[in-house]
Amino acid sequence: MKVSLFVTCLSEMFYQNVAKDVVEVLERLGCDIDFPKGQICCGQPAYNSGYREDAQKAAKQMISSFENSEFIVTPSGSCAAMFKEYPELFKEDKEWHERAITVADKTYEFTQFIVNVLKVEDLGAAYSARATYHTSCHMMRLLKETEAPFKLLANVKGLELLPLANNYDCCGFGGTFAVKMAPISEQMVDEKVRHVEESTATLLIAADNGCMMNIKGRIDRKGKAIEVKHIAQILNSRVEGSV
């Protein structure tokens, strides 16, 4: 199966290891991965801030880069949701609207792709930890993907997954919201960190680098002994000898 990796700008700039894990996991599942070189950023920072035209520039770049792909897979529910928003972004431009639909229709978040397209739930992964999982808002509410990450994590050997109180509440990232509304964002991420602590987990798993950057940034600042990892990093952890 031919898969184009939409790595996301955050992964490319800050989390290359996550990107590598995504590639390795998908390859192990038999995907032939390509990396469209024209890709940059989905445009969400501009779009969510009200700068529609600047977001359109970013979106056109992405559409041109990905429109010939068979499947587009990205390790971010939020960036995948932005691709799905492209038809709305170009609702007044017939040509780009149609091209946007082509791209939106074949876009999948990483775990969603594995579970719903590849129909695989057990990756033979192993990771020993007491963990909890952060359900990111855009994956849950815009992509409406609530099960895939849990199905995959349930099959990770050695991983104990603990419930996270108020998991439905946003972590306070929200892109530019985190700096535009800094005092409110701070309270939101504080409450999230508090709930993670109360879960007694020592590892927080997330499927979105934006949320991760926010929550990890606060956890580290407070000097808490809680690790934060992207779900691809967990799923690419192996028991020796397994396929």
Partner: peptide
């Protein structure tokens, strides 16, 4: 505004 309350990740090696 970000680093007032949280750490910011160091950029990776830019070589993906």
């Amino acid at each position: 505004l970000w680093t007032a309350v949280r750490d910011f990740p160091a950029p990776g090696n830019g070589n993906f």
